[in-house]
Structure formats: C-alpha cells, structure tokens
Nucleic acid binder design. Structure first.
Lengths: 217, 217, 217, 217
DNA sequence: AATGAATGAGACTTCATTCAT
DNA sequence: GATGAATGAAGTCTCATTCAT
C-alpha cells in the first residue's frame, strides 16, 4: 500500500484513480473474507466475534460494516465462494469415465481436492449451516443435495454396470461425503501432502477400500 | 410439593430416605444430560441456551445449577458418558481377528455402531471440542487420539501382514474417523436401518471399498 | 419493600408467598411502564435509551428485559393502557345528548379529560406511532380512526339537525383532535387546573368557539 | 463533472465565476434543506439518518458536510426559514381589525395558512425541539413564545372589549396553537383544499366555534 | 430442592462525523 | 468541491450465572 504510486501505470496523477481505489476495496473485501474463513474454521461461526475479526485485520469493528452488511453476509459470501469453487472443480470430473465406480472415483477426488485446497471449500464442507438464515440455508443445502445426489447416482450406476457391489447407496454416499467434509476439521495448510495427493488417496480409499488388490495395487 | 411425604408409597418413613433421594437426583441428572445432548446435537453447544434446556425439561434455570455447576460441566459429562460408551464398545472389538484388515473392520464396525446407537457417542464424535476448557479438551482429545492411534496401528499392521495395500495410514485413519464422526450430522433415530446394520455397512465400505469383489461379494 | 412483613396478612410464613411475589412483579412492571411513559413524553421514544429508563428506576438494564421482551413492547403496552383508558372514558360520553353539537361537546370533554388525566392517554395522543412495528401501528391507528370517525359523525349529525354550521367535517375533526392531542406537549401534572376543568374548557372552546354569546355565556 | 466548464453557457470564462458558483451552492443548500424538511416531517428528526438524506439527494454523505456543519445545523436552518416565513405571514395579520376576536381570527388564519403552505413552517410547528441544542432551542422557543403571547394578548383584549367570552386565555391559546401545529401531522400537499381554504376554516372554527350562528352563518 | 428476580459481560449494529485523496 | 473509507460513541439485546427466599 505504501508503494501504490509505483504500481499505478500512469504516474502523472497525484491521487489514486477510481479504478485503483475500487480494486483496493475488492482486495480488502477479499482479505476480510479470507480472515473470516480462517476464524470460522478455527472456532466456528458463533464463537467468532466481529471484534476478533476486526482485530486480526487491524481495522475497527465498524469498518467491517463498510464491506459487509452484517456478520451473516460474511459467512454467506464464504459459502458462495466455496460453492463456486467446488462446483467448478466438480464440473471437470464427470467426463470420460466408463463405469460408475470410475466416475465416482474421479468425482470424489475432485471434491476432496477442492475441499483441501480452498478455505472457502472447507467452509462449505464443515461449517454448520444451522447458523444461517432460512434463505441462505436453502442456497447451501441445494449444493449439498446436488453433490449427494450425484454421489448416489454414480453408486447406483455402478451397481447396475457391475463395477460396484451391493450396498445402500444412501449410506455409502453419506460415508463418502462425511469423510471428505471432515477434512475441514483436521487439515492445516502447509503439511507435507499436496491437495491433489490427499484428494487422490481419499478417492482411492473410499472407492477401492483398503484391501490390497492383486491386480492393481 | 409440600406434602411429598404422603405421596411416597412407604408411609413408614416421614421423608424419603437418602437412598431414594439420591436415586431421584441421579434420574434427573440423567434427564438433563440426555436432553442437553439432543439439543447440542441439534443446534450445537453455543447456540443452546441454558434457558432452552430448562424449558424443554420443564424446570427453571437455577434448578439446572443444582445438578451441574455450569454449562460446560454438562457437555463434559456428555463427553464422558460418550467416551465410556465408545470405549466399552471398542474393547470387545480387538479380539479374535487374524489380520490387520479384519481387526480394523471389526473395530470400525464397533465404533460406528456406538456412534449411531448412543446420543452421547454422537456428542463425542460430532461436537466441537473447541468450546471446552483446556482441561476438558485434554480429556476428550486423549480418547480421540487413542482411537486414531488404534486405527493407524491396525492399518500399519495390515500393511505388514499384507492384508492392506499401500496408503498413508494417517490419511486413511482420518478418512475413516471422518466418515464415522459425520454420522452425528445426518443420523436421526427412528430410521429404517438398525445401528448394527449401519455400523456393518460403514465398516464394509471403509475397509473393502465399494468395488465389487469376485470372491466374496 | 422494607416493611413487606407487615403488609402480608399471615405473618406465620417466613418468606413471601407466591401471591406477594407475583404482586411485586406487577407493581414493578407498572413502575417500568409509568417511568417509561414519562420519559417518552419528555423526550420521545427514540431518544429514550433503555439505560436511562433503567437508571431512573434504579435497576440494571438487563433487569428491564425481565419485565418486557424489548423496547417496543414497552411503548406498545403504554399505548394499550392509554387506549383502554381513553376508550372507557369515551364510552360514558355518548349518552343523553339531544343534538350533534351537544354530543360532540360531551365527547370532546371526555377525550380531553382522559388525555390530561392519564400519562398513558397522553402517550396515545402524542407519541409518534411511526416508531412502532406494522402490527402495533394497526392497533393504535384503529383507535385513532375510531375517534376520528366518531368526531366526524357527530359533526355531520349536528349539521343535519341544525346545531352545527357549515364546515368541512374532516377538517373540523382534525382541528379538534389536534388541539386535544397537543395537550401532551405542554401539560405538566401539578398545575392549578384540574383535568376536568381543562377538559371542560377545551370542549367549550372547540365547540362553541371563543365569541361571547348573548344567551348562555 | 470534470468538463463542467464546457456545459456552462458563456464559454468565455474558463471557470464559473464566483457569483455563479455561489448561486449554485445556494441552490444546492436549498435542495438539501427542502429534502431534509420532508424527511424530518415524514419520520422525525431522530429517525432520519444523514445517509438517507444523502441518498435521496443522490449525493454522498460527506458532500452534505460541505453545505452544513452537522445534522443539527440542518434542522436549525429549517426552523429559521420556517420562523421567517411564519413571522412574515403574521406581520400582515395585525392590521385593520377593530376587536380582539377579529384580530385573533385574522392572526390564526395567517398562522394556519403559513403552516399549511410551507414545509419549513410545518417543521417549526411540528418538529420536536427537544432534539436541538440549548442555544438552538432558545431561538425556536422565542418564536413560539411570541406567537403564544400574541394569541393570549388578543384573547385578553377581546375579553376586555367584549368580543370574547370568559375563558382561560392561556388554555385557549394552547388549544388554538395545538390545533394549528397538529396540521403538520396530517397535511399532505396535493389535497383538494388550498392552504388558504384550510387556514380560513381553521380560523373560523377556532374563533367562532362550530355552533351555527343565526346572524352570520 | 427449587424459584423469581437480578446482574455483568459482551455480542451485533447504527450513525454522525472526519480523513486522505 | 467531492469521494470512498474509516472511526468512536452509543444503543439494543442475550446469556450464563447468582442471590434471597
């Protein structure tokens, strides 16, 4: 922020242009969201006080209200970003697989990788949407239901095409989603494993299980 | 309430014996805990107000403080009961299996069944221990660590004895624990599946995976 | 409160009976309302802070919330009491007059007297109902409309029976209601004139005007 | 906005002359005051936020502070304009009447007409001067006292010259002022009655009353 | 054992106002 | 002159907890 003058292209103007200021605002909104996501993941939505958030950002409490109307709007935006990130991650996942089990594996890998990689993804996965207003809940639950439906769909498909054994698709989908969502509880950025590695192992475990397989271990 | 003495069956004693009174107290403490567990699971610890708990029990708020010193003591006791229930469930699980994979399967089945069956088990699995005091956290985390260690131990053992394929034991244990703990999020008593059935399926899925197996599907 | 023991009938009981305690609560609720009415009339609803109210009552702020759910509930109750007092005052007013002008005079006298006599009446007359929630506004405006309709009705009746001269009944009703409602602005209890005297003079002025009349001055 | 110079008619001058600029400023100050008066009358001084005022004027909040030092200065200026308008209306009223009653009638008509006609007049009549600082209050109350004194003076004069009957001049003045001030509560510009018509009827009612008079009905 | 009343700490939010540009 | 950003003070309300009875 100190060397803003050097970062603007035209050095002829003595004050920040609208563009720059608007960009600044966006940057700060993003900073608020990211810090909030961290705090929410650390402590939960309820226990995170606006003053804490303000302190960590080194701004005053009312300044937060410059960027967001209220506390809930902040979580909702975290959710929205997470939903978008997860959805775009999942879109790449449904192509080019031949059987239900393979589709499932690719899908789970994409989902798990997104949850690991993105703070906002972890918010969607882990935060308790019971805190949200009815309207906001609908938005979030719609995504979750879609993911759940996709999981069940692949499982049923796999059972039909013989790639997946007998099981209750509902229960299996719950187990898979649970394992992935739980990542939000333990994952700390900076560990030795890359998001992709974690995603791959999760997908492997949840589709093929732990048992050693003769053919493709 | 003034003439309680007349309402007891044995009119030989002018007031309830200590024994009876103590038993009454125990019964009420239990009722408090169970109701609290339900509320905590429904809404989370933070969002559950003491007044809500009192209302649902149809007693007054200060009466709660007769049975427990404070709100935290209530969760801690929920945790304790859950820990005890889970541990006793797990104790039966390590006997008579020959390979790591089998031990793991039996253990996971016992763990999942306990989480499904007991409200207090679900509290341990699902409630955020970040709400607890440092001392209480240690207690809870000790159990969780023990479970985690056992899971990892079985996985490593299975990898040594050839029953389990290559994978990161830490990650696999996280995935398993996550899937099971997540049960607290979706499980509602009264569904069509028994706790045992759910436990069995979870264990099956998390150890053998979804892939159809030629030999023993 | 110090001599409560002497005010309870049966001195045999060492603690206040439920009855007494309940009565105490009612007394305090009333005290809150009356103090609130005074403050609202002095400063308006908005400018009156709950802390001010608490201070004047020599209790703490949250104690107020023991008696009323929120600030609005307090004004609403002031309004309700005022409405009841005014309505019962007005009920005695419609009997035994022969012409519209006389009915009007008696009615205005009753209304003005009620506004002077009762703090809560002045609240209804003077407080800005724009502060209230939609539901509460309906309640208040219903009364005001009823009063307005009655005034207009008497005026039209008087014009038909010849006791009242030509004028716009709507405008006349506004003028009368305005004069009476304005009492809330200037009236201070403890002045030399009794509420009845003020009511009588208001009614006289607003119906017969100031002009000296030969026949019955 | 950057090329304002090109949009002015006389392109001979590179920037607006002081005169023009001063006039612009005056125009905008006036716009602020009028909009503020409307908002204050609709919602009261307290409930009207500076941001609301800025929004309705389609300018930013700090821009308001270019024209006025603070919120209070805005109301005070509304009051001042209202006072001026009312006073000049009243000055025309004391001429050429022979008895106290007639003087009163003409005065009341002028007062009522001014309150109806001018937003700022209604501000003086209706706004609660309790919001103002001590200094500002003195200014406003001085006007109100003057009006009150004049009303009382005419009433006493009328009682001496026989045109007005027996009554408490103080009370009568209150009633008259109240009826007129209350206009601010219900009057909406654009109704069927002209300000003059309303003023005349008010004056008639408040001096001669409603009773039909044989001689000059 | 149990109650109604009360409290202190702290949460979220609003708003008039000012600052740097 | 005007803007976006920021602030301090204050307000309403919640809630775990305690006191006197």
């Amino acid at each position: 922020m100190a060397d803003v003058s050097t970062s603007t292209k035209s050095s002829t103007k003595p004050w920040k242009s609208f563009q720059v200021r608007k960009r600044d605002t966006e940057v700060k909104r993003d900073a608020v969201l990211l810090t909030a996501a961290h705090l929410f993941l650390e402590q939960g939505y309820r226990r995170t006080a606006m003053s804490q958030l303000a302190d960590r950002l080194k701004i005053t409490k009312p300044a937060l209200y410059h960027y967001f109307h209220n506390k809930e709007e902040i979580v909702i935006e975290c959710y929205r970003r997470g939903i978008a990130l997860i959805e775009s991650s999942l879109q790449t996942a449904d192509a080019g697989q031949t059987c239900g089990l393979d589709k499932l594996r690719v899908y789970v890998e994409a989902y798990a990788t997104a949850v690991v990689r993105y703070e906002f993804g972890r918010c969607v996965a882990w935060l308790d949407d019971g805190e949200l207003s009815a309207a906001a809940q609908r938005e979030v639950r719609s995504l979750k239901r879609r993911i759940d439906a996709t999981l069940r769909g692949f499982i049923t498909e796999g059972q039909r095409d013989g790639s997946i054994g007998a099981c209750d698709p509902k229960l299996a989908a719950f187990a898979i989603a649970g394992a992935v969502n739980w990542i939000g509880v333990w994952y700390q950025p900076g560990g030795p494993l890359s998001p992709e590695a974690i995603g791959r192992q999760y997908a492997e475990l949840l589709t093929n299980g732990l048992r050693r397989r003769a053919e493709n271990a």
